[in-house]
Amino acid sequence: MSSPISPACAPREREPSRRQLLAAGSAGLALAALPSAAFPATQTPLAELIARVTEGATPVRGGIVFDIPQLVENGNSVDVAIGIDSPMTEEDHVRWIHVIAEKNPYPDVARFHLSPRSGRARISATLRLATSQKVAVVAALSRGGYIMSDADIVVTLSACIDGG
């Protein structure tokens, strides 16, 4: 009959060395520092995102002044200005302006609702961009139809890496 092994004689699991802990911590930090583009993600094509906000209608290109820098140093703070030449009357006005950033974790960046009481169809805002990508602006008109503009933006330091 075998006797139970006393705790003093039981094989002990080796505790990780300080070198192993540092190596594991460094690997974790390196993984966390990778840009979001390093992780494969399912992204909806820009055309589908636009079709969703226009309820399937094809917007006409033009009619929007979309002022956004082509090269952005920090994706956490991107200033944009959007202007549409509209009389903003009851019969003829811009109903809403929608901003779409196709590679952001949440591509619907902003939606601004307007009315004739808005006076002008001009918007200034600060956006977050996850990475270099195409940013589109779509506007719905009161007389029916949609107009759009887009721009390719290069982002040096990405934002939204944590998915937020």
Rank of each mutant, 00 (worst) to 15 (best):
A33D: 06
Q133T: 04
H113W: 03
I82K: 13
V53F: 02
T58R: 15
I153P: 02
G25E: 05
F39Q: 14
I161E: 12
I50H: 10
V109N: 13
L34G: 05
H98R: 11
T58S: 12
A57P: 09
A38N: 08
E102H: 10
I100K: 03
R117A: 01
E13P: 09
I123E: 01
S26A: 15
F112R: 15
L71V: 09
S17V: 05
S3N: 11
I50L: 03
L29M: 08
I153V: 15
A130H: 00
P45E: 05
A37F: 05
M1Q: 15
P40D: 13
H113N: 07
A38L: 08
G164D: 05
R122K: 11
P35K: 12
R111C: 11
I147G: 14
P45N: 03
A30L: 14
V99W: 10
A81T: 12
S132D: 03
I82G: 06
S124Y: 09
A10P: 09
Q70E: 12
P16I: 03
Y106A: 06
R117P: 00
P107K: 09
K103T: 08
V109S: 14
D162A: 14
R111A: 03
D85N: 14
V53E: 06
A140G: 08
L141G: 03
R122N: 07
P87G: 03
E73F: 09
E48P: 02
R95L: 07
R143G: 10
G164L: 13
A37W: 07
C9T: 12
P11W: 05
H98F: 04
I82A: 07
Q133Y: 01
L49Y: 09
L114R: 10
H113C: 00
L71R: 15
A30H: 01
V155N: 03
V78T: 02
R117F: 02
L29F: 04
R122H: 09
I161M: 05
A81C: 11
L49K: 14
A10D: 10
R61E: 11
V154E: 05
G144W: 15
T156N: 11
A130C: 02
D92W: 04
E73Y: 13
R95F: 00
A41V: 02
I84Q: 08
E91M: 13
P107Y: 07
A51V: 06
A110P: 00
V60T: 14
K103Y: 04
G163L: 13
P16S: 00
I161W: 04
R128C: 08
K103V: 08
V138W: 09
F112G: 00
L71Y: 06
L21E: 02
E91D: 15
G145F: 13
W96A: 00
A151K: 10
R14Y: 01
R61T: 08
F112C: 01
F112W: 14
A140Q: 14
A125I: 01
P11L: 06
I64S: 01
G63F: 07
D152V: 06
E13H: 14
S36Y: 01
E48T: 09
S118L: 01
T54N: 04
A33Y: 07
L71E: 11
Y106C: 01
